[in-house]
């Protein structure tokens, strides 16, 4: 009896000690789409305990069909979000005061894929190219405008069935997502039918982590720790791709999302590729000022933003100094 009591006391003391020692700061993170390998780094960071090690309790909440990650950030439903650079800049211009704390994507991932027979963008003049209505297609439209490709843009919600049915001559895809489906739908598409926007002078990076400036002021340490741990997650994913795909699929299953192994593998592989700067061949996870300026100018030119957004107002200080 005495033995039991002493054991109990010991356990209690230990748990108290544990509790007091670990004060986990809660962070709600919303990626810009449903669970998939595009956000592998974050799921890996949770699974491998990188966030916990940094004293963070991270919860990932997907945006769902009706909302965007930016809107959730705006409404305070998420502490940190992932979104594309251009969307973030447009949002900033619209008044959502966000800052960039991590720039995971270093290369643009948009690819125009054409039906067999069309081997140059010029040939798309007067032809139909499907692009999503749900955003992220501005860059392609800008490019078409700038080069006077008289493309007839067909707005589509999502998916590749327009391409499969032959209703369109080309389709705008994400290199890491729809591109895979388009290349594997039996339409005999070859690499000659693919056109990476990055190769045509529109190499604007995409995914990055953002939080409200106000959040950053209050919790800069947490934000930086989150960015750091997320980076660790990405680096782990780079080193252990198969394991990371397994982790992502596990999370997808939890969210009742059916996943295709080969698709997720492709997605992770391409995301990793796009995280590497083509010139320096490194994944810096920071936003290059020159490239930022380039993005700013394009948006300005095409009227997506009303005024220039200075770099240091856009990128969080700690992240910048790297």
């Amino acid at each position: 009896m005495k033995r039991l009591l002493t054991n109990l006391l010991f356990v209690l003391a230990l748990s108290c000690a544990t509790l007091s020692a670990q004060e986990l700061h809660k962070i709600i993170f919303t990626p810009q789409w449903q669970t998939q390998a595009q956000f592998a780094g974050y799921y890996v960071a949770i699974e491998k305990g990188f966030y916990k090690e940094s004293g963070l309790d991270v919860e990932i909440v997907s945006p769902g069909m009706s909302t965007t990650s930016i809107s959730r950030l705006k409404h305070g439903e998420a502490d940190v979000i992932s979104t594309q650079l251009l969307q973030a800049m447009v949002a900033k211009d619209e008044g959502i005061d966000l800052v960039n704390i991590l720039q995971s994507s270093q290369t643009n991932g948009l690819v125009v894929v054409t039906q067999p027979g069309i081997t140059s963008l010029a040939e798309l003049s007067g032809k139909r190219v499907a692009a999503w209505t749900s955003g992220f297609s501005e860059l392609a439209r800008c490019m078409a405008r700038d080069n006077e490709h008289n493309i007839q843009w067909i707005n589509i919600p999502s998916g590749v069935n327009y391409f499969v049915s032959g209703a369109v001559d080309g389709i705008l895809t994400m290199y890491y997502n729809e591109y895979f489906q388009v290349m594997n739908c039996g339409r005999r598409v070859t690499l000659d039918n693919t056109f990476h926007l990055a190769d045509y002078g529109y190499n604007i990076p995409e995914d990055g982590l953002y939080c409200l400036k106000s959040t950053y002021r209050k919790r800069s340490k947490d934000m930086n720790l989150f960015a750091e741990a997320s980076r660790r997650g990405w680096e782990y994913a780079r080193a252990h791709p198969e394991e990371s795909v397994e982790i992502v699929r596990k999370w997808m299953k939890k969210d009742n999302i059916a996943s295709s192994l080969s698709h997720q593998r492709w997605m992770l592989e391409k995301i990793m590729e796009l995280q590497v700067n083509k010139e320096t061949c490194t994944a810096s996870y920071t936003l290059d000022p020159a490239i930022y300026k380039f993005a700013n100018d394009i948006l300005r030119k095409n009227g997506f933003i009303r005024k220039d957004i200075p770099y240091d107002e856009f990128v969080a200080p700690k992240a910048e100094s790297k």
Binding site: F180, C185, H263
Partner: peptide
């Protein structure tokens, strides 16, 4: 399979509308 190779009927429910004959070929 549908017009693009996607499984529309398959004994493995997880594959339906999720994988195509081409995507599983890659495995």
């Amino acid at each position: 399979i549908g017009c693009g190779g996607t499984f529309i009927v398959h004994p493995d429910k997880d594959k339906i509308l999720n994988e195509s004959i081409f995507s599983i070929a890659l495995e």
